[in-house]
Every structure is written in C-alpha cells, then in structure tokens.
Amino acid sequence: MLLFLVIFDSVIADDVSLLMVLVDTNPFFWSTTNNALSFSKFLSHVLAFLNSTLLLNQLNQVVVIATGFNSCDYVYDSSSNSVAPNQRTERLLQKLEEFVIKDEQLSKEESADGIGSSLLSGSLSMALCYIQRVFRSGPLHPQPRILCLHGSPDGPQQYVAIMNAIFSAQRSMVPIDSCVIGAQHSAFLQQASYITGGVYLKPQQLDGLFQYLATVFATDLHSRNFLQLPKPVGVDFRASCFCHKNTIDMGYICSVCLSIFCKHHKKCSTCGSVFGQAQTNAPSTSKQKRKSPDT
C-alpha cells in the first residue's frame, strides 16, 4: 500500500515583497562637492540592489519613485509588462533622465538658496497610493515596504504632509525604511522609521552602499522577526511649527486641532479657534482660552 504525503504550503510564500524605492534626485544635493558618492555610483549600487531583490523571488515587485526638487514621479515598475526584462536598466535610466530634465524646467521660475529639500512628502504619498491600490487588488498581495534613499536635508515646510504620510503608513502597517546618504541625520526619516517600525540607517562607508542595502534593507518582513537589524539610537522628535516652519523644542499647541506654533497667536491658523492670553498670564483667563470655534 502506498500513502502519499504531500505537504502543502497553504498560503503564498511569506517572503514575497513589494519594495517601493524612493530615490532622491535633488540636483542641489548631488552637486555638492563633499559627497563621498557620485550620483552615477549611487545608481549602480541601487540598480544592483533592485536586481538582487527581483532575483530573490519571482513574485517580488519593485517600484522606483524619483523624489525631485519640485516634483516626483514613478520611474520604474517591475510589474508592468511593457518592459522586457533585459531592457530594464535602459528604461529606468531613460525615464530618470526625462524626469530630471522636467524637474529642472519646473525649478527655473524660483531661485533656491543652498541645498533645498526634495519633495519627500510627495513621493511618500505616491508610494502609499500605489500600496493602497495593491491592497485592493485582491486577498493575495505581496507585503509592501517603503525604502527612502534620501540625502537632502529635511524641509520643515513639508512637516505636516510628511507626518500625515507617516501616520497613514502606520495605519496600513507599511514600514518605512530609511537609508540616509547625506551628511546629516534626517529627523523626519528617523521619526518615520520609528513610528512605522522600519529600519533607520546612516551608512558610515558610502562606497559600500550595496552591502548595506543587501544586508539590512533586502530583509523581507517575514525574516525581520528573526534577524538582528540596526536599532534606533536616538530619534529626533522635534516638530516644526506651522507658522514659520521652524524646528522647535518648545512651542504653543492649539488645544482643538493640535497645530503647533512657535509664537503665541490670537487665532489658530488651521482650525480657526480663538485663543485667549498666553499661559504666563493670570489663570482667570483660562476660560476664555477654551472658546470653541464658531463654525
């Protein structure tokens, strides 16, 4: 008598991932001379990393979003069938070039001083939109995660938009990994990775970027439960004020909508609540302060 024991994996293999890579293409950042890594070298590291991600599982999916100075756009999607696998690099580089030129044309109108920040909030939102679409595509979807390869300094004026994106990623359980290739730490990305349970890393040796990417950021969500990954050392939780977009340690908060201000205002610019005197005044005015908005 023969008995068959066929062992079934009941669900889709658990390491199938959807990797959204946000690549910083801010020309002001890449043109700074003190960069240890040139843009072309950086790209070759990233391409090798994308290659290896696609190599690990045939169902893995990679989407690349370019984060420019004025705009952001999808430059590569491995799931679109229009690109033959052997023309991937060509297509990606071509799209990237088109994007950078378009981005440059947009910026001619206004002049920037110093290294401006790139539009991280925009590309984060695009990544999250894409992920939402994947979530709705059916019960069997790859596990998404976002990887920010970011070098430009934080733009405090994007604070609200970025925080909203972070919280929406947290809600949909999408980790945001950050790999900072600039000179300074990024407070935004530290918070993003901390809140969403992703990994934040600022590589010491930028010429070995691929090894960092392969060791830390290639880890699928399933394996993260078993591997030692870099732990957050210190997270800069400071917020930006809504009025002047400065990063502040202490400030005023609207008691109705939690907007942050660096100075005392008469009225909340976000929700329109009318405030009383600042707290340093006599406590008798506290009743006035709680006045609710008329709307």
């Binding site: 293999a13 658990d14 190599l55 599982n57 392969a214 290639a218 880890t219 699928d220 394996s223």
Partner: peptide
C-alpha cells in the same frame, strides 16, 4: 536561490561579495 527558505536567501545575498 529562489527555492531557498527566506532566511537562507538573505544569507546568500549577504555573503555574495
């Protein structure tokens, strides 16, 4: 490589260079 358990894939990638 694709047939390996996830952790093993990771090790191969990590040791590739």
């Amino acid at each position: 490589l694709r047939s390996l358990p996830p952790l093993a894939k990771k090790y191969v990638l990590q040791m590739l260079y």
